Each structure stands twice: as C-alpha cells, then as structure tokens.
Amino acid sequence: MKHFDYIFTGTGLSAMMTVYKMVVSEKFVGKTILLIDEDSKKTNDRTWCFWQKEPSIWESVISKKWDTALFANESFKRDLDLSPYQYNQIRSLDFYNFVLELIKEQNDITFLNDKVTDINELDTHVFIATSTNSFTCNQLLNSIYNKVLIENQQQYPVLQQHFIGWFIKSKQNLLNPEQVTFMDFSVAQKNNTRFMYVLPTSKKEALFEYTLFSHTLLEKQEYESEIKNYIHNLGIQDYEIVEKEKGSIPMTCYPFWKRNTKRVLNIGTAGGWTKASTGYTFKKSDKKSTQLVSFLETQTDFRKFHKKNKFWFYDLLLLDILDRNNELGGRIFSDMFQKGNPALIFKFLDEETSFAEDVKVILKCPKTPFIKALFRIVFLSNKS
C-alpha cells in the first residue's frame, strides 16, 4: 500500500489552486502528493468570474476582462463603473491545463483518475480506498461534497445557485463586448430570485446564463426557454449555440469547519469556501488556498485552520431571508446596486470592508427583512 505525505480527494478548483501554490512556494520539495478524481479534467465544464484590482497569478488564463457592468430590473438599469476593479473571466479547461502542465513537471505529484470509496482516519495516518486501489497519507485534503449530510440538517438554510448557460455566436453585431451584465432581474421572478447573467466576449459572442437562488432546480426546458426569450428580446434572431454549461452550487452557512479533524481538512465547497450569499467561488478559494499553503508550512492540526468572521453572519442573515421569502432577492440586490457605490459593494462581497463600510452597504438594503432575520437568529441562538 503506497503512502503519501498529502492526498487530495477531489481535484476541483480548491485542490488545483492549493497544489499549484504548494509547488510555486518551493516549500514542499520532496513531499509526495496524490490527487484522486473521477474526472480527468479534459473538458470545459464551467466558467469562473471574479473581480480584481491588480493582476493575479492566474493572469495567463484570463480569457476576458470588463471595466463596466450592467445591473437591471423591471424598472431601472444602471451602468456600473467597476474602477478600481476589473471583472475577469476564466474558462475552466484553460485553468485545468495551466495547473496540470505544472503538475506533470513534478516527480513527486501523481494524478489518479479513479473514484474514492472510503476515507478512514486512524491514529497515525489516513486510509483512502478507491474503486481499484488503496493508499495512506499523513494529511488528507477533501473536496468531495457530501450533499446528503448538508441537506438533511435543519439548523442552517441551504439554497442552490443553479443555472444553465449557453455560449452563442450570432450573425448580428448586437452585443457590447465592453460590458458584462452582472444581474438582470427584469426576467419574471415567479416567487423566486431569478436573473440573467451575460458575459459578452465580442459583438457576436456571449455566454447567457439563466440563474436562480432558490431551493429547487427547474426542468431543463424552463431554463432554456428563458434564455431563448432573453436573446430574442435583445434583437438577436440568427445564432448558433456553440457550447452549454450547467451547475448547482450550494449556498449555506453550515459550519463545515466543525467536521475538520487533526489529519483531514475539508476544502472547496465541501469546506465552505464558496461565498454563501452569492455562490462565487473563485476569489474566496484563491484566498483560502493561499492561507492553507501558509498553514501547511508550519502546522499539522487541521482543527486549527478555520477562523469565523463577521461576513459569515452577514451571509447567514441574507440566506435566512431568502430561505423564508425567496421572492425578496431581486429587491435586496436592486436596492443595494441602484444607488450604492459599486466598488464598495464588490469590496464588501470580497469580505475586505471595515465595519463602517459594512454599514454603508447594509443600509442600502431593505431594512425590515434584515431586522426580522437578525431577531430570529439572535433569539433562536440564545434559546438553544
């Protein structure tokens, strides 16, 4: 049975980022690493976006940047100057190839295309079984999300950011490639939080995503019908669908860190690295993976890794509202963006604001739902 210093079960965004930074740091030379995943990472299965002030280490795989964004609902539209930020797009296959090329050059890193069937932490090591083999390691980093565990608990709301996206190529020059449509709530809400998200890469090409923050997924034809109608309403009549993508990202403040043990750390979505109130994953995973690599240089007890902050509580308030009154999402985001400072809002969503700045953003939101949510959460936590 082969032994490794580190094993990653699941090789999504968080694992790839962490391994890449471990290699670049040059602090783990001679350490053996095994990555296990059923998926060989050879397809473009998703698109990640994030806002950034300065160039990042992922600069070479960014496929498009925007300086402005559009926010809209049924009654208003606002052009958002994102300065000093830029909105960046990365296609997952470009990211996978970038990281895997570096991994291939490392003698001590192995990628195994297999299914994990068992994880068992023992006193001195962790045992991992796959469908064809078994291994041991000193420390395990797990990004395999346990959907049943999270959805069967009742204490913390669980919603989904779910979507279907079409990459289209039109024969008409009707798109503005210099502006991303960040959220367009002008689509029918149907007692949910529903919006269109558009990433134009040229005057003829764009990704259109019909997105919901809600509890349950829709039938495929409902997403696609809404995308088709939205494209038609823009005046685009003649186009081809080049590629499709779909996803469902859990939105929850469940305390994933409480399931970390001395030798097993949950990372990525399985570790709560997704921003609970928005579903954004890339930027938060970038920060958390940097923190993790620094932690691994000096620490071995994973129970010490996580630190809860005020933004976890803010996210919990919003999810409590959307859990009970899902139709309020459009109003909350509209109030925030209609008159709020876009740069400050993005800084807030990046969890980098001071308390005084937090207040400026929060006061733009409708107050009654948040006061009620605050009362419920504080009252119930005091009772329990």
Rank of each mutant, 00 (worst) to 15 (best):
K307V: 06
Y210M: 12
A270S: 12
T261G: 07
F111R: 01
D301Y: 10
F302V: 00
Y223S: 03
W58C: 10
Y239R: 03
Y314I: 04
R259D: 05
E101S: 12
G279W: 04
G165Y: 10
S131L: 11
Y85R: 09
T290H: 14
D286S: 14
L363V: 07
L141N: 04
P55M: 00
D350C: 11
A188T: 07
T261M: 01
Q106H: 04
I128R: 13
K204C: 07
E38Y: 09
F348R: 09
N382A: 09
T201E: 00
Q155Y: 13
K372C: 09
K203V: 04
L174P: 12
D123K: 15
H232P: 08
T117K: 12
S92N: 09
D94T: 01
L319Y: 02
R78L: 01
N120S: 05
F208Q: 01
V126H: 08
R331W: 09
S63D: 00
L93W: 02
S214I: 01
T281K: 15
Y210P: 14
L35T: 04
D37H: 07
C365Q: 12
T181E: 06
E352M: 15
L212G: 05
T136M: 03
V180M: 06
R46S: 04
L212N: 06
A69C: 07
G30M: 13
N146P: 15
I168E: 05
Q52H: 14
R376C: 04
F182P: 12
F28D: 00
I144C: 07
F302A: 00
P200I: 00
L35M: 13
R91W: 06
G329I: 01
F355A: 02
L380Y: 15
Y239D: 00
A69F: 09
E245P: 15
I36N: 06
V180W: 10
Y96T: 01
D67S: 12
V187R: 10
H162E: 02
W166P: 15
I345A: 00
V23L: 07
K288G: 05
F256E: 00
L140K: 08
C137A: 01
D45E: 04
S294Y: 14
